[in-house]
Design a protein around this nucleic acid. Structure first.
Lengths: 167, 167
DNA sequence: TGAATTGTTGATCGCTTGGTCAACATGGAT
DNA sequence: ATCCATGTTGACCAAGCGATCAACAATTCA
């Protein structure tokens, strides 16, 4: 019993995700967010609590939509590890000037806020493990495999960050 | 004829560089900057013009102090290209949680401002060419060499950005 | 239909931001 | 010693920020 929502929180969160993606956490103002989400400020705060909480939820949505598919490719069975790695990097868009929300946030406000930094570190660790699982055929030495997986994770980050400056 | 400076602009700029490095452009407030630089706001604006101009000068100082040495190593004659590349990556600090000011700025608000983005793109291009020059012995195919140099540049960026989130 | 509950609205809050300015301080030149 | 040019100071400004709140609207249940 009560008044029903007049907006879809999932749709609004998706809109917020794109604002954060384009502008970054700091430059994404509440005014930008509320106009993109199509809701008033009070509704935004009632539904999402604060700008930081909204960002963390937007980041989680980004992971679901854009990181998980890559991890799925890396961990998919049936192909060789090298094929999966190649397929992963083929998925990286070559013309996305916004880069990657996860990588952007690592370089940005992430360094300041512990909650955000931990969320990012957790996802980068997931990606590293996915690369690792695609290397089991090649490297018997666990340490060497881990280093190779770290390097591939770093290569991914670098590709997405560089795209923001060069394109 | 006139009153002499009471502060050393080079010292003040160095202090500003470290503030931008730690906090990023947006989170580095004028109050943070003026207290770190040890000068009042009016002096800061008389000497540097604006926050953005101050940032661009701080970025140029960062390049001089921390990017050029790496480029020197990559382009130094006498060693093999592989040795120079190895030496370059050995120079990357493993415990610098601030990452690299250049890379941070690429991922951050710098992506928004054209002046900043061009300055960053210019330096990343310098780095790529330095890698390229260290690969002349290995790859006769120019296209392949360029791609390898791009990959090494991206790997560098990724290492520095990742360090901000993980450490 | 009326009461209770919950979503929505937009004005408003205190605060910080980047930037400016007139008054003042400090030197060299005459 | 005086003048003048320039550096320094800190109060001040408008604008924008994230966040809050009381009034209002919409829906369900009794």
């Amino acid at each position: 019993m009560a008044r029903p929502y007049s907006f879809d929180p999932d749709v609004a969160l998706d809109a917020a995700m794109h604002v954060f993606w384009r502008a970054g956490y700091d430059l994404a103002s509440l005014s930008d967010l509320q106009s993109a989400m199509g809701i008033q400020r009070g509704s935004l705060y009632q539904e999402f609590g604060s700008k930081k909480k909204l960002f963390l939820k937007a980041l989680a949505l980004y992971v679901t939509k854009f990181v998980d598919p890559g991890i799925d490719v890396l961990t998919r069975s049936g192909d060789t590890g090298q094929d999966r790695i190649k397929r992963f990097f083929d998925m990286v868009p070559s013309d996305e000037t916004r880069g990657c929300l996860l990588c952007n946030s690592a370089a940005g406000a992430a360094g300041t806020d512990d909650d955000v930094r931990h969320a990012i570190a957790e996802q980068l660790e997931r990606l590293r493990k996915a690369f690792d699982s695609a290397l089991v055929e090649d490297y018997l030495d666990q340490t060497e495999r881990r280093e190779k997986a770290e390097g591939l994770t770093q290569l991914y980050i670098g590709k997405r960050v560089e795209a923001r400056a060069l394109l």
